[in-house]
Amino acid sequence: MLRVEDAQVPVEFSPELIAKFDDVVSRYPEGKQKSGLLPILHFVQAEFGWLSVPAMDKVAAYLKILPIEVYEVASFYTMYFLRPQGKYVLEVCRTSGCCLVGAEKIMDHIEQKLGVKEGEVTPDGLFSWRGVECLAACGFGPVLQIGPEYTFYENLTNESVDKLIGELTAKAKN
């Protein structure tokens, strides 16, 4: 949900980011630039880790639409984060196919390993995790994805999860 205090975080869009927006908007007919909203929000989230109110307001200004049009989209779709997350968000499929092959146990393991509940951020700011719905990888479950590139990790085991968390921790420290 949108929170008032989030409005305080200042945001600047770099020329590189704006260039990406321009490229997206060129794909639609004249006057239909609003079609670029979802792709542009992905770019903004990839840059800042989440969508703050000032960031969304700037997107609205860029697309020449009302801020509310951005908020209603950002709050409708599950991929957009309306509050800060860990640097790495582990999103584990929690739907039937993956549960048949142990997704629930993997989520329990991640919760224990990271020491935070679903949706919370680890004290070092590195990780958060949550269950998400079917990721269209059901034959290779359990699976998880990590944004902003949404790299998939398939056929998870406790060991492969530990290894992944270890690697990401090392990567963040370098």
């Binding site: 794909r27 079609s35 979802l38 792709p39 929000l41 992905h42 989209v73 409708f76 779709y77 599950t78 991929m79 957009y80 998400v132 719905e133 079917c134």
Partner: peptide, 12 residues
């Protein structure tokens, strides 16, 4: 023909 890829936002 111009062909473009459009990402969704996570919604079945």
């Amino acid at each position: 023909l111009e062909l473009y890829v459009q990402p969704g936002g996570g919604a079945y």
